[in-house]
Design a protein around this nucleic acid. Sequence first.
DNA 1: CAAATTCTTTGATCCAGATCAACCTGATGC
DNA 2: GCATCAGGTTGATCTGGATCAAAGAATTTG
Lengths: 244, 244
Amino acid sequence: MQIALTAAVRCAECPIRHRAVCARCDDDELSQLEGMKTYKTFKAGQPILWRGDDLVFVASVVQGVAALSKTLEDGRTQMVGLLLPSDFIGRPGRGQIDFDVTATTDVTLCCFERKPFEKLVDDTPHVAQRLMELALDELDAARDWMLLLGRKTAREKIATFIQMFVRRTHTDEQAAGPDQFNMPMTRDQIANYLGLTLETVSRQFNSLKKEGVISFGDRKTFTVVDMAALHNATGDDADGGMID
Amino acid sequence: MQIALTAAVRCAECPIRHRAVCARCDDDELSQLEGMKTYKTFKAGQPILWRGDDLVFVASVVQGVAALSKTLEDGRTQMVGLLLPSDFIGRPGRGQIDFDVTATTDVTLCCFERKPFEKLVDDTPHVAQRLMELALDELDAARDWMLLLGRKTAREKIATFIQMFVRRTHTDEQAAGPDQFNMPMTRDQIANYLGLTLETVSRQFNSLKKEGVISFGDRKTFTVVDMAALHNATGDDADGGMID
DNA sequence: CAAATTCTTTGATCCAGATCAACCTGATGC
DNA sequence: GCATCAGGTTGATCTGGATCAAAGAATTTG
């Protein structure tokens, strides 16, 4: 889990920091792909990609939240990744994916055809390098999540989730206050991300609220009242394991 | 989780397939690093790297098993990766790691200094590409494990673990029979990998044995008697989600 | 605005797996 | 050979979260 958002620069043509595609949008690599860019939108709940689909497009999330998830034979599912604005779908050399991608909220994607994108990657070493960096970030995040799923209590899972979400969110434009943030996911979706049930998620949220660690007015708007207490509840040690 | 072992070729100089460093050892990229290569061995239980350590070396596992693990403040730990022979430690651009690496059995590593290795990566596009591929394989494996940790029952976890282990192992030289294999990990280590306790691991192993799915003579030697039943017990659907 | 629908909360009960506690078994050393 | 010790098994009990159930909000629809 990374604290710092990458120092990505806003692409001149695009209402989004292309965190994944390009950490230095000012270098204009992506301009080579201008004209091949299309926006697609998906309604909350809609599938974006199914497991096994051919990846015709790669895409940046412009707005909204999407989720990567895996399902067992009998229907139990587990989210294995969250895609927030600036996150990227698609990797060089991978024409298929092994998970479903679903719109968690209404989502806008900025899509590029796979072919020219791969050519760009091949021709531009530092873009390739940047994509490697991002894959490794995802790997780190996945491993943090493995620790959470394997060993944390329900309370610790919720606290970790809130902390992660605030960190990924609170520099964004839509941040309404210091540690206030919008929670665009339902209890059920959060449960799927944390390996819990929705009832347990609800109970733990309310217990953190009762203890004055967080508070929420509107059901979608949270404030972290006591950041230190929240961190304490995560079970992580002091620095939270951040590398960069 | 990948079924197929990569078609890596044995390096002329090295008693190991350099699965990670080089899928085409016959192209001799690694020969550029000859002379910088050192072997290091670690006794079972010994730490290899601590979280936060600077990575002076990158390394291939030649023999034995090592584990990546993460620890909570109060000592609970979770393995977040297994390193079997031919697996690789160290990524281009990452000078530090965010987990501990420990020898699970006695381990031999083939180490290269980080600096010349990174230069090799920079100068050799298809090695860089290969490393990206491997990072993505690890990411896939991590996500499979997230599903396991978050949603599978103890029985399903054990069955999945055995299946994974057989698949990663049974083409190796040391494989004694068709589906017979050596289990170099203790119940405790397996528990740490699966997010269980050692007692539960023991009970589930014995219950699978009682049902005739597996059998074991020596405590370290297992045979999968009924592969179909084993797969059935994993909770995964038919093809197990393999991409390549 | 009422009705329908989708989320959320809250309570009661249950159970898979953790925890606690012996005891067993095989390997290593002296 | 016996002692020690690290791992493994097996049983009894406990408990965190799941499951089942029902009753509130909020939001959407007509």
